[in-house]
Every structure is written in structure tokens, then in C-alpha cells.
Computed example of a mutant assay.
Amino acid sequence: MDATDRRLVGALRENARASWAELGRLVGMSGPSVQERVRRLEEQGVISGYQAVVSAEAFGLSVSALVDLYQSDDADGDDIVDQLRDILEVEDCWYVAGDENYVVKVRAADVAGLESVISKLRRVRGVSRTRTTVVLATNWEGRSLPAVVEPPDDDESASVGSES
């Protein structure tokens, strides 16, 4: 990815509905050229999709929690992940290093709904136990990737670590 690709990705992260012409103005290219670049970035897997960011509260999901899942010794991790995909309240799933094996982010309407989700998670074949952290407030979510930031100029990077 060159600097133009990085600017395009940054612009799309801010507004994925921007027109080709608008994106072109931002990076100094024609609309069709931008469209071709974005298509190439999609094919390379740099851009893996587009989605609407919606308010969970608008859908009545005011309770969020992070749930640690501990895998039993004889469990198949792929089977656990497949079962987690079927639990609609699971928004994100991470395989992690540490005492727990997975951390999932879940959303529910209320505490009773959260209790129901935790019960579903405990019934997942291969999960030996859970530990839940209830989110009290969300300061931010979906922060932009640092890779979108412009790399330093060659002159700047050449001077890093050089003797003065």
C-alpha cells in the first residue's frame, strides 16, 4: 500500500458512502481511478467489507459485557467457535493468550437478558467455565487502525536511530 491507498482507506473509514468523485478530490485522482484502486484494495483483502455502525441502545440492547470463556482440556476450539457463531447476542469473539481461551463481547436488553446469554455460553460444548465483566460505560468503540496513519517520510525514517 502506498500513501494514496492509505489516504483512501482512511477516507473510507470516515465515510464509506463517499462518492468516487469525492474520494478522488481528497487524493488528487479521477473518480474512475479511485474506483479501480478501491476495487484492487478489496481484492487484496485490505478492505474486507462495509457496514453501517448502529446504536445498540436504539435496538434496546443497553447492557454490554465481556465474557471470558475457559476451554476444557478435551475441547475442540473450532467447535466452540462454531457454536458461538450461533449465539446472536455474541457481537465479537477473540481467541486470546492467558488463563481464559476466548473473550466474547455480548449485548443484552437488561440484566435478565445478560443472565440468559451467560447461560447459553455456559452450555457451549467445550466451555468449562465463564467469567463476566459488565461494561458500565463505553468511552469509544471501533477506533481507527494505526496502519491508516501516514508512514513517515523517507528523510524522517532515515534519521531515526542515526548518530548525531
Rank of each mutant, 00 (worst) to 15 (best):
R107W: 10
S116Y: 03
E14N: 11
W94R: 15
Q83Y: 06
V103K: 11
L136E: 14
E57N: 12
T132K: 11
D86M: 10
S19D: 05
V149P: 01
L136W: 11
Y95H: 13
A108M: 06
R122N: 12
V54C: 05
M29K: 14
V81G: 08
T133G: 15
R37I: 00
Q35I: 01
G24H: 02
R143A: 15
R37Q: 04
C93F: 00
S116R: 14
A65L: 04
V81A: 14
Q35L: 09
E14P: 04
E100F: 02
A97L: 12
E42V: 07
L26P: 02
A109I: 01
V46N: 03
F59A: 11
S55C: 06
S55W: 00
D73V: 06
R125G: 11
R107M: 12
I87H: 06
I47D: 04
Q71E: 12
V127G: 09
A65V: 05
D110E: 01
S55E: 10
R85E: 11
V149I: 08
A112K: 10
E22D: 13
V54S: 11
D74M: 06
A21K: 13
M29T: 04
L121N: 06
D5Y: 02
G142H: 08
A21H: 13
L12D: 01
S62Y: 01
P152K: 07
S162I: 03
D5N: 11
V111D: 13
T138N: 08
Y70N: 03
E141Q: 13
R7D: 09
T132Y: 06
S72M: 12
G113M: 04
G98P: 00
T138K: 12
E43R: 15
A158E: 14
Q83V: 01
Q83R: 15
Q51R: 14
G10S: 15
E150D: 09
S157G: 01
L145Q: 11
G60C: 06
D76I: 02
V34S: 08
L145S: 15
R85V: 01
R39H: 13
Y70V: 01
V46M: 09
Y102N: 04
D99W: 05
K120S: 15
A147Y: 08
E115C: 07
R122F: 00
W20A: 14
V148S: 12
C93P: 00
E115R: 15
S33L: 04
D92G: 01
M29D: 09
G24W: 03
R131G: 09
E22F: 04
L61A: 13
G10K: 10
D153S: 15
D153M: 13
E156M: 07
R123C: 07
S64F: 05
W20T: 06
Q83C: 08
D155Y: 10
G142Y: 03
G45D: 05
A58G: 14
V54K: 08
E42H: 05
I47C: 05
Q44R: 15
G77N: 05
D110I: 00
W140H: 11
K105C: 08
T138W: 01
T133E: 10
Q51T: 10
F59S: 09
T4S: 07
S30E: 09
D82A: 15
S62F: 00
G98S: 04
Q44M: 12
L145R: 12
W20G: 11
V38G: 07
E36W: 10
S116K: 08
A158S: 13
A112S: 12
L41H: 03
S119W: 09
W94D: 13
E36N: 13
S164A: 14
V81S: 10
V54I: 12
A108R: 04
E36S: 15
S33G: 14
